Amino acid sequence: DEFHFHWNGRDIRVRGDSEELRRLIEAIKRGELSEEEIERAIEILER
């Protein structure tokens, strides 16, 4: 699976399928994380 979302003017695409990944992306979409937490998560996910 590939998750695709927009954040902070960026087009983010992440491959993978796990419950943890889904929860993280939902939290990002709901605005539950700080900008710094989101940046760090995206860096890890894009590897």
Results as ranks from 00 to 15, higher is better:
residue 1 D to H: 07
residue 1 D to E: 12
residue 1 D to C: 05
residue 1 D to K: 04
residue 2 E to R: 01
residue 2 E to A: 02
residue 2 E to N: 10
residue 2 E to S: 04
residue 3 F to Q: 02
residue 4 H to Q: 03
residue 4 H to P: 00
residue 4 H to L: 04
residue 4 H to I: 13
residue 5 F to P: 05
residue 5 F to K: 00
residue 6 H to Q: 05
residue 6 H to S: 02
residue 6 H to E: 06
residue 6 H to A: 01
residue 7 W to D: 02
residue 7 W to S: 03
residue 7 W to E: 03
residue 7 W to F: 10
residue 7 W to H: 11
residue 8 N to C: 07
residue 8 N to E: 08
residue 8 N to T: 00
residue 8 N to Y: 01
residue 8 N to P: 01
residue 9 G to S: 01
residue 9 G to M: 00
residue 9 G to E: 10
residue 10 R to Y: 00
residue 10 R to W: 00
residue 11 D to W: 03
residue 11 D to E: 15
residue 12 I to E: 00
residue 12 I to T: 00
residue 12 I to W: 04
residue 12 I to P: 00
residue 13 R to I: 15
residue 13 R to M: 13
residue 15 R to G: 13
residue 15 R to N: 14
residue 16 G to N: 07
residue 17 D to G: 11
residue 17 D to Q: 06
residue 18 S to C: 05
residue 19 E to G: 08
residue 19 E to H: 12
residue 19 E to M: 09
residue 19 E to C: 03
residue 20 E to W: 06
residue 20 E to G: 09
residue 20 E to S: 08
residue 20 E to Y: 06
residue 21 L to N: 15
residue 21 L to V: 11
residue 21 L to C: 03
residue 22 R to L: 13
residue 22 R to H: 11
residue 23 R to T: 12
residue 23 R to P: 10
residue 23 R to Y: 11
residue 23 R to S: 14
residue 24 L to I: 10
residue 24 L to Y: 05
residue 25 I to S: 04
residue 25 I to W: 06
residue 25 I to L: 09
residue 25 I to Q: 05
residue 25 I to C: 04
residue 26 E to V: 10
residue 26 E to F: 02
residue 26 E to Y: 02
residue 26 E to Q: 10
residue 27 A to V: 08
residue 27 A to Q: 15
residue 27 A to D: 10
residue 27 A to R: 14
residue 27 A to Y: 07
residue 28 I to A: 04
residue 28 I to V: 06
residue 28 I to T: 03
residue 29 K to D: 07
residue 29 K to T: 11
residue 29 K to G: 13
residue 30 R to C: 05
residue 30 R to V: 08
residue 31 G to N: 14
residue 32 E to V: 09
residue 33 L to D: 03
residue 33 L to H: 05
residue 33 L to T: 04
residue 34 S to P: 08
residue 35 E to D: 14
residue 35 E to N: 15
residue 35 E to V: 14
residue 36 E to H: 15
residue 36 E to A: 15
residue 36 E to N: 13
residue 37 E to S: 12
residue 37 E to R: 06
residue 38 I to P: 00
residue 38 I to E: 03
residue 38 I to A: 05
residue 39 E to F: 12
residue 40 R to P: 03
residue 40 R to A: 09
residue 41 A to C: 09
residue 41 A to I: 15
residue 42 I to Q: 01
residue 42 I to A: 03
residue 42 I to R: 01
residue 43 E to N: 12
residue 43 E to V: 14
residue 44 I to M: 14
residue 45 L to Q: 03
residue 45 L to A: 05
residue 45 L to M: 11
residue 45 L to K: 01
residue 46 E to R: 04
residue 46 E to M: 12
residue 46 E to H: 08
residue 47 R to D: 15
residue 47 R to H: 13
